[in-house]
Design a protein around this nucleic acid. Sequence first.
DNA 1: CCTCGGCATGTTAACGTGCACAATTATTTC
DNA 2: GAAATAATTGTGCACGTTAACATGCCGAGG
Lengths: 357, 357
Amino acid sequence: MPKSGPRQPVMADVARLAGVSHQTVSRVLNGSPNVTQATRTKVVAAIRELDYRPNSMARALVTRRSRTLGVVSFASTLYGPASMLDGLEQAARSAGYFVSVASLRSLDPRSVQEAVDRLRDQGVDGVAVIAPQTSSAGGVADVVSPVPVVMVGTGTPSAIPRVAVDNVSGALAATRYLLGLGHRTVHHVAGPEGWLESREREQGWRRALSEAQAEAAQTFSGDWSARSGYEAGLRIAADPRVTAAFCANDHMALGVLRALHEGGRSVPADISVVGFDHIPESAYLVPPLTTVRQDFETLGRRALGLLVEELSGVAHSGHQVLIAPDLVVRSSSGPAPARDAAAIGRVTRPKASAVRR
Amino acid sequence: MPKSGPRQPVMADVARLAGVSHQTVSRVLNGSPNVTQATRTKVVAAIRELDYRPNSMARALVTRRSRTLGVVSFASTLYGPASMLDGLEQAARSAGYFVSVASLRSLDPRSVQEAVDRLRDQGVDGVAVIAPQTSSAGGVADVVSPVPVVMVGTGTPSAIPRVAVDNVSGALAATRYLLGLGHRTVHHVAGPEGWLESREREQGWRRALSEAQAEAAQTFSGDWSARSGYEAGLRIAADPRVTAAFCANDHMALGVLRALHEGGRSVPADISVVGFDHIPESAYLVPPLTTVRQDFETLGRRALGLLVEELSGVAHSGHQVLIAPDLVVRSSSGPAPARDAAAIGRVTRPKASAVRR
DNA sequence: CCTCGGCATGTTAACGTGCACAATTATTTC
DNA sequence: GAAATAATTGTGCACGTTAACATGCCGAGG
C-alpha cells in the first residue's frame, strides 16, 4: 500500500534535474528532431532516474487525442465476440492504443447508442462495434457519433466502414460441399432472428441450394446455444428425409450431434452435420465437426487499421472489408446415405482442397 | 461558413447560456446541495439544450481520478476468463466506472508487470488481474503498483486482495461425489503447470482421495484444450483399471469423452467423467457432463467491490474473498462398474443435493 | 562587418475542469 | 432595525501537458 509519500514526478521535475526547460523534455518525449544529442541524453537520464511517466490525461486534454479506442461488444463470452475483442486488443496495443470496453446486454439500437455515448464521454478517439445489426431496427447503422465508428464482424453495407467475415461465402462453401457429396438437399439450423450473421449464413445456404437446383429444405431456428441446437436436432432426428444439416454455428451443431446420437441416427452415415465458427473444441466432438473457420486475428487487425486510417483524417467513409472464411472438413460429414445411390455415382469428394486438423 | 464545425460545448458555454458562472454549472453536475432549485433548473436546461458532456480528461486531470479501472486478462477467449471480464465490466458500469483492458500473451511476471504499467500509464484508478499466478515465478504476487490491485479468479493468499473461486472445495466435492458412487479411486486430468487453478484443483482431488483412504491414482496433464484432453483420454481408455476421471476443466473433459468413445469405453457405464467450469455447452455433450459450476457474475461484483473499497481509502490490505462453486450432476457420471460390486453396496447416490439441468 | 537564416532552447498561453476562498445575498436573532 | 449568521454564487488558480511564438546562437553570404 503506497502511502501518500512523494508525489509522482512531473515534467517540470525532470526538466529541473536535467537542467533544461520542461518544453525540451516534451520535445524529447515526442521525438522532435530539433534536440541536440547531448541534451537528449541528459533528459533521458533524468527521466530514467525519476522513473517519470507522462500524464496521459494532461496530454489528452491538450492534444484532444486520448489514444484510446472504445470497443462495444455483445455476448462477449461467446467464442466469436471474445476472439474479435482479443484480436482487436492485440492490434490496438501494437499500434499504441489503449482499449476500453463497453458490453451490451441487449441488442436494441438504444443501448448500442448508449454504449457509444458512454465511450465517447470517456474520450475515446474511435469506436469499434462488435455487435450484430438487428435487421429490423437498423441497429448500428444510424448510430450518431462525433468520433469515427467501425463495425466489426458483421453489418450491412452502409456509410459506416466495416470489417466483416464473409458469412455468405462461408455458408455457400459449406452447402456446396454437402451437395457435392451427393445429398439431395441440405437442411439448415439457423441462428436467431435479428442477427445479421443468421441472415447472411442462411442466405449463402439458400443460394447454394438454388444454384444446384436442389429441393427446398426446411429451416430450424435457434439462438446460438447448444440447447437450441439440441431441440432442432430432435426434430431433425425424427425426420427420415434429412440427410445433411448445415448449422449456423458450432455450438448449435454440438446440440444437434447430441440429439442425433440420442435419436439413434448415426453421423455421418445417416446424417452429415456441418457447423460454423471453428471453435477450438470442434475437432474433439463426437464425431469431429466439419466447420467453417474465421480468422479473427486478421479481422481485428484490419478493423483497427480502418479505424486508425479514419481518425488520421483520411475520411474514407463507406470502406468495406470482407474476410473470406474457409471450410475445415472433418468426419461429421460424408457421402449421402446409400438409398440415394443414384447420386453417389456423380460425387467427387473434395479431398485435396480440404483442410483436416 | 464554419470550416471546422462548431466545437464541443464546454462548461463556460453552458454557464453563459444559463447566466451563471462555470462553477455553478460544476456544482450542478456534481450534485452539490448548495444550489437553488431555480438556478439548478436553468443550468440543467442549458445543458440539455447544448447537449453538453463534461470532458472526462479535464476532470481526471484535476481530481486525479479517472473513474477507469484496468483489467489485465490472460487467455481471454477461454470461457472462464471471458466470463470474469464480462462480470467485471457489468459491475464496473453500474458503479460508474469505465473498464480498460490489457491482455497478456505470456504468463511470466515481467509481462504482467508490463500490462499493469501500461494501464497505470493510462491513468486507471485501480487494476484487476484476471490471470493465474505462476506457482514457480511468483507472478502477480510481487507486482509493484502505485494504484490498488486485486486478483480475480485465483491467486495465492498474499498481501494483494483477491476474489477467487474456491477451486479446492470444488474439486473436493467432485471427487467425493465420485468416491461416494463406489469408485475405488478417481483419476485426474490436470491443467497445465504454472496455473494456480491446476494446482488447487489437483489439491482438492488429492485431499478427497486421502480422506477416503482411496488408492493413489495416476494424474494426466493437459493444457486446458480439448486436444490435450483427448490425448489424456486415449491413455485412460487404454487403462482398464480406470473407472472415474475428474478433469480440471470442461474442455479437456470434452476431449476425454471423445477419446473414450473412440476407444469403445462407455460413459458412464465403464467410466465416469466429471469436468470443471460449467461451460454452456456442457449440458449437451454426449453424454451430458457432470461438472463444477462457478458464479462469475458475483465474482466480478465482489472483485469490483473490493477494488472500490480499496481506492476509497479503506486500506484493507490482505482482504480475501472465496466463492464456493457447486456440483452439477448429469449423466456422464454414475456408479462404479459391476466388477466393483462390493463397493456398490455401500453407495448412497447424492440425488437430493444434486442440481440437474 | 553586418545581416540573414536555420537551429536549439526558453517563455507564455492555452486545454476544461474542480477547489479554495472571496463576495454577495438571504435569513435569523436579539 | 441592525448585526450576526447562513446560504448561495462568483473569482482566481492549479492540474500537467503541448502549441505557438520569442530568443539566442552560430555560420554563410553580400
